[in-house]
Design a protein around this nucleic acid. Sequence first.
DNA 1: GAGTGGTCTAGACCACATG
DNA 2: ATGTGGTCTAGACCACTCA
Lengths: 245, 245
Amino acid sequence: MQATARQDETRSPRYYRIYQALLSEIQHGDLKPGDVLPSEMNIAQSHGVAPGTARKAVDMLVDRGWVERQHGKGTFVRRADFSHSLARFFRLTDREGVQLHPKSELLEIRALEGAAEICRQLEVPEKSELIEIERVRRVDEVPLLHEMIYLPSARFLPLLSLPTKEWGDLLYPLYEQLCGEVVFRATDTLSAGPAPAGPAHYLGQAPGSQVIEITRLARGYDERPLEWRLSRGRLDLFHYSFDIR
Amino acid sequence: MQATARQDETRSPRYYRIYQALLSEIQHGDLKPGDVLPSEMNIAQSHGVAPGTARKAVDMLVDRGWVERQHGKGTFVRRADFSHSLARFFRLTDREGVQLHPKSELLEIRALEGAAEICRQLEVPEKSELIEIERVRRVDEVPLLHEMIYLPSARFLPLLSLPTKEWGDLLYPLYEQLCGEVVFRATDTLSAGPAPAGPAHYLGQAPGSQVIEITRLARGYDERPLEWRLSRGRLDLFHYSFDIR
DNA sequence: GAGTGGTCTAGACCACATG
DNA sequence: ATGTGGTCTAGACCACTCA
C-alpha cells in the first residue's frame, strides 16, 4: 500500500517534516539537553507513518549532532562540550599527548555600554548594557590566553553578584546554572594582530607584538547570540590541525 | 522471512560489509573518480541482500564523501576539489564577498635528498630522493603565500621535464594528468613562526618576522602520503573561521 | 520505455537496558 | 517481561534522465 496523500502541503518528504518538527522542539526548549525523545515507534504512530520513516527523521538529527542514540535506553538531546575548545588551538599536551585544560583567573567583571560592533554581533540594540569579563588562562602558570568576554546584561545579571572566588575554569556551566542560558554552538574566527598593552602584559609579550586573535560568537539552541569574546594568545604556542575533504 | 545466516563471519552488519567492499574498490582504484557505481539493485543482487540494505551501504559512502548520487543517472565516485583550499585562510574576497583564487608563480623545481623529517611524513625511507618545488602565490600581485612542496621522486618524475611555462595555478590536476596520482584528502596544520630570508623576501616582510605557517600532508585514495608542503603567509591577511559543535 | 535513485510501507527478528 | 534502538526483508510508487 502507498500513502494516500503524498505531495500535499510542503512537497517535502515526510521524514524531513518530522525531522523539522523534532528539531523545532529542541530549539524551542520543549526538549532540553539530556531529555529523552519519544521512541521511534511513538514518533511513527503520532505522525502516522511507518517506523522506518520515523527512524530516518531521527537519523538526520543524529547525523547533525542534535541527539544521541543509546541502544536499549532511548534517544537523548545532546549537551555541548566545549571544555577543550580553546585549548585545542595550542601546542600544549602532557607526555602522553593529551590536551591540557587551562586554568582561568578572573581579572575583572563590570557592566558598561556596549561598543557598536559588539552590539551588532550580539544582535542587541546599539549602546545596550553589556557585561564585560576579563580573564587570563594559564597552563602550568604559563599564560596562554587573554580574554575579553561580552554578554547582554539583561540575560546574565546574576553573574554580577557572584563572588570572585566562586568563578571556576569554565564559564558555560555557570551561564547555565545561574542564568539558564545554554550555549549550543559557536563560531570561532582565527586571525592575528598587534596586542594592546593590557593583553600583552598578561601574555608576557611586548606591547604591539603580534598575537593570535580568536573571536567567538556563541549561540543558544534557538540560534540567538549569547556571548562574544576576543581571546588573544601567544603565537609561539599556536598550533591547529584539521582535515579537508 | 529473515536472513538464514545472521552473525556468521565478521559479526558486522551486512550493509557495513558491503560498504567496506565498495570502499576498498574505490581505494584500490578499481573504481576511479568519475566512475559510476553499480546500481543499488545490482549491488543488492550481487551481495544477496534486499535493496534497502544495499542502499544503506551506499548512504554511508555518500555521508563520508566518497561518492555522489545523481538522481536518474547513477552514483559516481567523487573527485576532490581543493581549488579554494589554501586561499580560505586569508581575508581576500572580491566586492561580493567571493573568495579569490591566487595565481601561482613557479620559482624553482629540483630533485634532492630528502630531509629526515619530510621523509618520515611522506612515509618513504630516509634520504630518499624528493622533488622540491618552490612557488609564490599572489592575488592581484599581492604576495599571499610562499610554498615549499615535497614529493617522492619515484612517483612524480614526469614533473621534472615539464617546461616552466606549462605550470598552471593548480598542482593537483597536474599530478593526476602527468603522474596518475590523485589527491583525495589532506590534513592542514596551522602554526606561526619566523620567516627565513627567502620566504620573507617574497612576502615583502623583514627576515625573521612572524608569519603564518600552514603545513599540509596530502594523501591519495589509498591513504598513502603523496605530498608534503610548507606554506608561509602574511599574518596581516590571515583569517579563518569555522563552527564548533 | 527502461533504468536510476528517492520515498515509503508493514512487517520481522536481534541486541541491549531496566525493572 | 517489556520497551528501546539496530538490522533486514520484499515489496510499492514517484521523480528524474536518456535513448
